[in-house]
Lab assay of single mutants.
Amino acid sequence: GKMTGIVKWFNADKGFGFITPDDGSKDVFVHFSAIQNDGYKSSDEGQKVSFTIESGAKGPAAGNVTSL
C-alpha cells in the first residue's frame, strides 16, 4: 500500500536519494525514475512524499513517488 515519508536527501546529479518513512521503518532508496512529477524528476530534502515499496535488484526501493 501507499506510505508517506520525508525525502532525507536527493542527489539530482546521480539521480537517487533516500526517503525516511513516517512509520519509523528503515530509510528507503529512491531512484529518479520512480518520481511521478511531470518534467524534471528530482526531489528536495524535506519534501513530504507518498510512495509504494517495490522490490528492486538491490533490495527495497520506493515506487510511485508523489509530492504531497
Rank of each mutant, 00 (worst) to 15 (best):
F18L: 04
N11H: 07
I6F: 10
T52Y: 09
G5Q: 01
T20M: 10
G17H: 01
G1F: 10
W9R: 00
S67P: 14
T20F: 04
G56E: 07
G15D: 02
T52C: 10
T66H: 09
K48S: 07
N37E: 11
A57W: 13
S33W: 07
P60A: 07
D38Y: 14
G56A: 08
V49L: 03
N37S: 13
Y40L: 13
T4A: 03
K8A: 07
G63K: 15
D27L: 06
F51H: 01
K8N: 04
V7Q: 01
T20R: 13
N37T: 13
A61G: 04
S55H: 14
N11T: 02
G17L: 05
I35W: 15
K48F: 08
P60G: 04
F51I: 04
L68A: 07
V7D: 04
A62T: 02
L68P: 04
F16K: 00
G56K: 06
D13Y: 12
I6N: 05
A12E: 09
D27V: 05
I6S: 07
F29P: 00
K58D: 08
G1D: 12
Q36C: 14
D13H: 11
S67L: 15
F51M: 02
V30C: 07
N37M: 14
S67R: 12
N64Q: 08
Q36H: 10
G15V: 04
E45W: 15
T52I: 11
K14L: 14
G24R: 03
D38W: 13
K26Y: 07
G39F: 14
G5S: 01
D44S: 15
P21G: 03
M3N: 06
P21I: 05
Q36P: 06
G1R: 11
D38V: 12
S33K: 07
I19A: 01
I19P: 00
F32D: 03
E45K: 15
A62Y: 01
M3Y: 12
K41E: 09
E45I: 15
E54L: 13
T52K: 04
M3P: 04
K14I: 09
G56N: 10
K48C: 11
G15F: 05
D13W: 10
P21E: 00
G17F: 06
Q36K: 11
A57H: 12
G63S: 13
V49S: 01
D44F: 15
E45M: 14
K26H: 09
D38Q: 11
F51K: 00
G5R: 00
T4I: 07
V7C: 11
T20H: 06
V65R: 00
F32L: 10
S42D: 08
G59I: 03
S50M: 09
D23V: 05
D22W: 05
N11A: 06
I35M: 13
N37P: 11
K58Q: 10
M3G: 04
D44A: 15
A61L: 12
D13I: 13
S50D: 03
S42H: 12
G59V: 03
F32C: 12
G17D: 01
G15I: 05
K8T: 06
T20L: 08
G24Y: 03
G46R: 08
Y40W: 15
V28N: 00
D38H: 12
V49R: 00
G1W: 08
K58F: 14
G59S: 05
Y40A: 10
D44Q: 15
G17R: 00
G56L: 06
S67D: 07
F18A: 02
K41S: 12
T66C: 10
M3Q: 09
N11Q: 03
T52D: 07
K48Q: 08
F32E: 07
V28E: 01
S42G: 11
V28P: 00
W9A: 00
F10N: 02
G24M: 05
P21K: 00
G46M: 09
E54I: 15
Q47V: 11
I6L: 06
A57I: 12
A34I: 04
T52Q: 06
V30A: 00
V7T: 01
K58L: 11
F18D: 01
S50E: 09
A34V: 09
D23Y: 05
G17V: 05
Q47G: 09
G5D: 02
G59P: 05
S33L: 08
K58A: 09
G59M: 03
G63A: 15
K41R: 11
K48R: 15
G5H: 02
E54H: 14
F51D: 01
G24I: 02
D27R: 03
D13K: 14
N11F: 04
N37H: 12
I6H: 09
G15Y: 04
K48G: 06
F16H: 03
S33G: 06
A62R: 01
G39N: 10
P60R: 12
G39K: 09
D23W: 04
A12H: 14
G15Q: 03
A34Q: 11
D22M: 07
G24P: 01
Y40C: 14
F32H: 11
S42Q: 09
F32T: 07
D44E: 15
S67F: 15
I35F: 15
L68R: 03
D23Q: 04
E54Y: 14
D13A: 13
F10A: 02
E45Q: 15
P60Y: 09
N64V: 06
D27G: 03
D23N: 09
V49A: 00
E45G: 13
V7R: 00
K8I: 08
A62V: 03
D44L: 15
N37A: 13
A12D: 08
P21S: 04
G39Q: 10
G46T: 07
V65F: 00
G63N: 12
S25T: 10
I19D: 00
P21Y: 06
I6Y: 11
S55M: 15
D38A: 13
A62H: 01
V28S: 00
A57K: 12
I35Q: 02
D13V: 13
V49D: 03
K58Y: 14
W9Q: 02
A61Q: 15
G24N: 06
G24A: 03
G5E: 02
T4F: 07
S67T: 12
S43L: 15
G56S: 14
Q36F: 10
N64K: 08
S42A: 12
S43F: 15
I53G: 03
D44M: 15
F32I: 14
G15N: 04
I53H: 05
H31S: 07
V30K: 00
S55C: 15
A62K: 00
T66M: 11
G56P: 03
Q47S: 12
G15H: 04
G56H: 12
G1C: 14
E45D: 09
V65E: 02
V28F: 03
T4D: 01
V7W: 10
V65W: 01
D27C: 09
T52N: 07
F16V: 03
F51N: 01
I35H: 03
V49K: 00
V65I: 05
D38C: 14
A62W: 03
N64T: 06
V28G: 00
F29W: 07
E45R: 15
F29E: 01
G59Q: 05
A34E: 08
H31D: 04
P21Q: 02
K26S: 11
W9I: 02
T4R: 01
S42M: 13
S33H: 06
F10Q: 03
V30Y: 14
S33I: 05
W9F: 08
D27S: 04
N11L: 05
T20Q: 10
K2A: 09
G46K: 08
V30G: 00
F32A: 11
S43M: 15
G56R: 07
I35E: 02
G5P: 00
S43Q: 11
K41D: 10
S25Q: 06
K8M: 04
V7S: 00
G1A: 11
S43I: 15
I35Y: 13
A61I: 15
D44W: 15
T20I: 12
S33E: 05
Y40D: 09
D23T: 04
K58H: 12
V30W: 08
A34Y: 05
G5M: 04
A12N: 09
V49W: 04
K14T: 06
N64R: 06
A57E: 12
A12Y: 13
A34H: 06
A34C: 08
W9T: 01
D27A: 05
V7P: 01
K48T: 07
Y40V: 11
V7E: 03
D27Y: 03
K58C: 14
A62S: 01
K26P: 14
G15S: 04
N64W: 09
K41T: 13
H31A: 05
H31L: 07
V28K: 00
S42P: 11
G46S: 07
N37C: 15
S25D: 07
A34R: 03
K58T: 08
D38L: 14
S25F: 04
F16S: 00
K26Q: 13
G17A: 04
D38G: 13
V65D: 03
V28M: 03
L68Q: 07
G59N: 06
S55K: 13
E54M: 12
D23C: 09
S25R: 05
S67M: 15
F51S: 02
V30T: 01
Q47N: 10
I6C: 11
G5N: 00
G1E: 12
G56I: 04
I19C: 06
Q36G: 09
K2M: 12
V30P: 00
W9G: 03
V7K: 00
L68D: 06
F10C: 07
K26A: 13
A62L: 03
K41Q: 10
T66Q: 11
K2T: 11
K26L: 08
K26C: 11
G24S: 04
E54F: 12
V65K: 01
D13C: 14
S55W: 15
D22P: 00
V49P: 01
S25G: 13
N37R: 10
G46P: 09
N11I: 02
D23E: 03
K41F: 14
V7F: 09
A61V: 15
A12F: 12
N11C: 10
I53P: 01
